[in-house]
């Protein structure tokens, strides 16, 4: 008993000599090696430390951050909750006007993007277009996706459309958003097209339809709900993106935002931020509702399905619904779309 039992396997708990020789079946499973995991974590840690030193951050600034957040937050809250006399009411209407202009910019941008994205999506789908076309279109789309909207706005759209008749360069912003939407939209649409059910395609081919007829009668009915959902996703993304363009003078809430930040008028900053949050969340809600309706059909709640969990902003959560097998855009693509 005092000497360790050398014959026992690593998982053997008995201290007596086993009646049979141990083989692999008697042992507990070997714990898998964590070496690669640990090496990966180590690499991430090294990269993190290198990045922290490489960015040249000043951590002293972080010490003052809570104090300034509280100080300026109070100023902003005071601005939001002050009694709305004529001037303050003017601030609110100005903010809402600018935000609605942003929504309009995003809508026009999404429309322009949508117009081009459907044909390009077909050209970038492997099952719909020949290989050379597919490769070229895919490459062009990744280049478009790599260029930030801001570059389209400054380099091409602002000189091309000027600051517009309405002033503020809203049209230029909309066109910049439209061009940069094409990349993501076409990619998502092409993935939806690649995922279509092959049955209708085969049957339309068997009944002698040409390529256009096949697209019209076999592909479009399958992908159209997803495509509309993708367009609406992009509309939500474009509302946020239009703020960036506004800072450059391309219209919308961004122009106002940069003006009030430039003047450090904290009460107005508070008002503008509240307007942004309210309108964005409202549009997200409406868009999520429409997407839900387009994808799942109108009679979802009445047919005794399981209750939907997407309450505030989650959009459609098709993962919850066992009957829905086609996610409008797979989640990782949603991340790519900036949502």
């Amino acid at each position: 008993m005092s000497t360790p039992n050398l014959n026992a396997g690593p998982g053997s708990t008995s201290q007596t000599k086993p009646r049979f020789a141990e083989d692999a079946l008697d042992r507990r499973p070997v714990r898998p090696s964590k070496l690669r995991y640990n090496l990966g974590m180590l690499a991430v840690g090294i990269i993190f430390i290198a990045a922290v030193s490489g960015a040249g951050m000043d951590f002293g600034a972080l010490l003052n951050l809570p104090a300034s957040i509280i100080q300026y937050g109070q100023l902003m809250a005071a601005g939001v909750f002050q009694a709305p006399d004529a001037t303050v009411a003017g601030y609110w209407t100005q903010s809402f006007d600018a935000m609605f202009e942003s929504v309009a910019i995003a809508w026009v941008g999404t429309m322009v993007g949508a117009l081009f994205s459907l044909p390009l999506g077909f050209l970038a789908a492997r099952n719909m277009s020949p290989l050379p076309v597919y490769i070229v279109v895919r490459f062009v789309l990744s280049v478009i996706r790599a260029v930030p909207e801001i570059i389209f706005a400054i380099a091409i759209m602002l000189p091309l459309f000027g600051f517009g008749s309405g002033g503020g360069g809203a049209l230029a912003g909309a066109m910049a958003l439209g061009v940069s939407s094409i990349g993501t939209l076409s990619k998502l649409i092409s993935e939806a097209i690649e995922a279509v059910d092959g049955g209708p395609l085969e049957s339309s081919r068997a009944s002698g339809s040409n390529q256009m007829q096949m697209i019209r009668w076999a592909v479009m009915p399958q992908v159209m709900p997803e495509v509309i959902a993708i367009w609406l996703y992009r509309f939500e993304v474009n509302i946020r993106a239009s703020a960036i363009l506004g800072v450059l003078g391309a219209g919308g809430i961004g122009a106002l935002l940069s003006t009030v930040f430039g003047a450090r008028e904290w009460d107005r900053i508070g008002i503008v931020l509240v307007v942004i949050i309210v309108v964005t969340m409202l549009v997200d809600q409406i868009s999520a509702f429409i997407r839900h309706r387009v994808i799942h059909g109108g009679d979802l709640r009445s047919d005794g399905g399981e209750p939907q969990e997407d309450d505030d902003d989650a959009g459609p959560s098709p993962e919850n619904d066992p009957r829905v097998e086609t996610d409008p855009a797979p989640q990782e693509n949603r991340a790519a779309a900036g949502l």
Binding site: A243, G254, L257, M281, D284
Partner: peptide, 10 residues
């Protein structure tokens, strides 16, 4: 959702 509704430039 409040965090998400403020754009990155904001």
């Amino acid at each position: 959702s409040v965090i998400r509704s403020i754009p990155d430039v904001g």
